[in-house]
Design a protein around this nucleic acid. Structure first.
Lengths: 353, 353
DNA sequence: TTGAAAGCGCTAACAT
DNA sequence: ATGTTAGCGCTTTCAA
């Protein structure tokens, strides 16, 4: 009852009156098979419900048709916003379209890092998609040592040398440009004292957004910058700080929507009207957050799902290129330039600014 | 450069001066090897960095040490709350502890269902953990036909016959009991007109919570029940409806925290003070939501991560039992009783009730 | 206790 | 265009 033996290539071959090789060719879409035969084989495959045994195939092809998605997050914070879920969706779609398995690796501490390294080095997957959130994360280094093709989610932090070299491929959104746009929008609204609540500054996204803020406001008073951590609580804390320090501020650019939601709460508590007294802009356009705040949040949108899809696409593409070292050694392309792909952002206007 | 050949069993055997069989035994913890030899083999394994080839192993053992996690969600709604992320975490922990791969399958429509069915039937994994959210979901049926050991997340809906039989194993929290407690708490607070905003009634969790509400309030006026859909927007809509219909209501039990957050917004908008005029209780204790509402939400907590861990545990345990049909056919246990495991809930008091 | 040998199901030369 | 054959790396009888 538990033991229903699946039909093998052999079985299909026998039934169709051809050799295993022929069935294999048909199954793998090799063109060199007469259409009549191919048709017959396909019929038998359907009849028998034949499904190739991945293990057997993998054993000989040395490929696994599987990629690992590594999400490293010591904090529970990740799970507070749907960021990874969306990214995963994009990844899943792309992988599914290519019949590639998605092996999920969640890590939660130093011990786990080792485990992931071993797994990746073990050669069980053809590649890895890695979300390396923190600047000092040892994961990139570990992964590079594992020698698995990898695409990072988000620009990997310094020192680049530690994590797959300066040209480690990654996908990110234009954090800096988006931040710049956000702040310019506030400037365009006539705001003169625009504060910024940063994200966790051990993540490149937070640093880049801060840089974008500074781009737009080169001579800004440092007192207008307060450090947050991408959480609502951090946003509250920073907002209070800012208000105490610079009561006259008339706008806030928050590093993300969650932060903005915390800031909004404090503003309300302190009796500041938004956007009349203080305009607020967020970042991410996390719908469940941005649409639910009071007032709804003007924010910078990034297409998270697309980022995921792109990451997977890049990995798959790279894979095709380096499969079995078919290409010439030391191709010109490998040193061509930064392997990062940066997606554009757009400002979404709602009521808060 | 891409082609660094991993050491094989053979290599280890040669280096250690023993046979492949012996190495295999050591690697798999077979006790029948002299300790001296075993020690030597282990040393060589470390030296060479040997990692067993899963494909080769799988080919002969007919096991995969992999389970699929199927998350079926046509709507984007899932991603609005961290529910699945938490559940995944629990699952991941348990699987990792047993060195089992987690293969993630995200589905988004009818076509995907077929794909998942094929995948599962293809025998690439040893089992599946399935989140079947909707009563009319065809997935359970498809999965049963695939003949893969499965544990469901959340009580599967009717008709049970369609989805793995009445004793399909599942893990859920005590939705009914939790709801009952929540409502009784409101009653204990002296509230007389306690409304309920349901969840999406095509999900058993919503139905069970409604039942719990009715348990506590057997003769409740139907006008006090409004249908929601587990979203903040649904909560708003339902709250308006309730307020229009029964302005005198003095409490609301919302099917989940997101719904409650929407309800709170409407109450504030209509000038009702919470909890003074209207007490509100949610369900889930989704921290980022429940702690951030105004006022913070009294709610029913369920241990989501633990549910995930338990699901994985049940699957693994079952697997051990039915591995190669070692046990007696038709064991008494199989018909023993409902295979569902229901975790307790607890009321978390905050400011809203 | 250890080793020798036979495959698991598949692909990829190599023949034909 | 199709078939034959030799493994891929591992586990598992079966002998020794």
């Amino acid at each position: 009852m538990t033991e229903e033996p699946r039909p093998t290539l052999e079985a299909v071959a026998a039934r169709a009156g051809v050799s295993r090789a022929t069935v294999s060719r048909v199954v793998n879409g090799d063109p060199g098979v007469r259409e009549v035969l191919a048709e017959k084989v396909r019929r038998v495959v359907d009849e028998l419900g034949y499904v190739p045994n991945r293990a057997a195939r993998s054993l000989v092809t040395r490929r696994h048709d599987a990629v690992a998605v590594v999400i490293a997050e010591p904090e529970t914070r990740v799970f507070a916003d749907p960021f990874f879920a969306l990214q995963l969706r994009g990844i899943s779609k792309e992988l599914t379209a290519h019949d590639i398995q998605l092996v999920l690796l969640l890590t939660e501490g130093r011990d786990d890092h080792e485990r992931v390294g071993r797994y990746l080095a073990g050669g069980h997957v053809d590649g890895a998609l890695v979300f390396s959130l923190h600047l000092d994360d040892p994961l990139p280094g570990i992964i590079r040592r594992a020698g698995v093709p990898t695409v990072f989610g988000g620009r990997p932090g310094w020192p680049q040398a530690e994590g797959g070299g300066p040209d480690a491929p990654y996908v990110d959104c234009d954090n800096r440009g988006g931040a710049r746009d956000a702040v310019r929008h506030l400037v365009g609204l006539g705001r003169r004292r625009i504060a910024h609540i940063t994200g966790a500054l051990d993540q490149t996204s937070a640093v880049d957004r801060l840089d974008g803020y500074r781009d737009a406001l080169p001579d800004v008073d440092p007192a207008l910058i307060a450090e947050g951590d991408f959480t609502p609580a951090g946003g509250e804390r920073a907002m209070r700080e800012l208000l105490d320090r610079t009561p006259q501020l008339d706008a806030v650019f928050a590093a993300n929507d969650l932060t903005a939601s915390g800031a909004l709460r404090v503003l309300r508590e302190r009796g500041r009207r938004v956007p009349d007294d203080v305009a607020v802009v967020g970042f991410d356009d996390m719908l469940p957050v941005a649409e639910q705040t009071e007032p709804p949040l003007t924010t910078v949108r990034q297409d998270i799902e697309e980022m995921g899809r792109l990451m997977a696409g890049m990995l798959l593409q790279g894979r095709a290129g380096q499969e079995r070292g078919t290409g010439a050694e030391g191709e010109a392309e490998s040193g061509a330039g930064p392997a990062g792909v940066v997606l554009p952002t757009s400002l979404v206007r709602r009521a808060s600014a």
